[in-house]
Simulated scan of single mutants.
Amino acid sequence: MTKFGELINLDIPVLIDFYFDWDKTGENPQEVLRDVVAALGDKAKVIKIDIDKNEILADALKVKANPTFIIYKEGQMKWRQSGELDAKTLIGLVQKYA
C-alpha cells in the first residue's frame, strides 16, 4: 500500500474524502466524487479513505466527522471541512489550488 506522505506530496491538488462506509445518509457520495473526478481529470487526484480501515491515520489527522474533506498540495494541507458538499463546490475548491 502507498504511504500517505507519498499520496499527498504531489504538484497537483489532492482531494481526500475521509468517510465511514456504513453511513449511507445524505447525498450519494460516490456520484459526487465521480462528478469531481470527471470535471478535474488529471488536474487533481481524488482519494477516498475509509475511516474504520484507517483509524490510525484518521486519529492522527483528528478526523471525527463523516465525511471530512481535505485538500493537500505538495504535502501541505491547504483546506479542510467536514460535512457534505456538492460536486460543484468541491470542484471550485480544488481548482483554487491547481
Rank of each mutant, 00 (worst) to 15 (best):
F4W: 10
F4V: 03
F4K: 02
F4C: 04
G5A: 05
G5M: 04
E6I: 05
I8Y: 05
N9Q: 06
N9S: 10
L10E: 11
L10T: 11
L10R: 13
D11W: 12
D11A: 14
I12R: 15
I16K: 07
F18P: 01
F20P: 01
F20E: 07
G26C: 05
G26S: 05
N28R: 00
P29H: 07
Q30G: 12
Q30V: 10
L33W: 02
V37E: 13
V37T: 12
V37G: 07
A38K: 07
A39I: 10
A39T: 10
L40H: 01
D42N: 07
A44M: 08
A44C: 11
K45Q: 14
V46D: 09
I47D: 13
K48I: 06
K48T: 08
I49F: 06
I49W: 06
D50M: 06
D52E: 15
D52V: 10
D52C: 08
K53C: 02
E55T: 12
I56A: 15
L61Q: 00
L61I: 01
K62A: 14
V63L: 05
K64H: 11
K64F: 14
A65G: 09
P67R: 03
T68A: 02
F69H: 15
I70M: 15
Y72S: 00
Y72F: 03
G75C: 06
K78D: 04
K78C: 03
K78V: 03
K78R: 09
K78L: 07
Q81G: 11
L90P: 10
I91E: 00
G92C: 02
G92D: 04
L93E: 15
L93W: 14
A98G: 13
A98D: 15
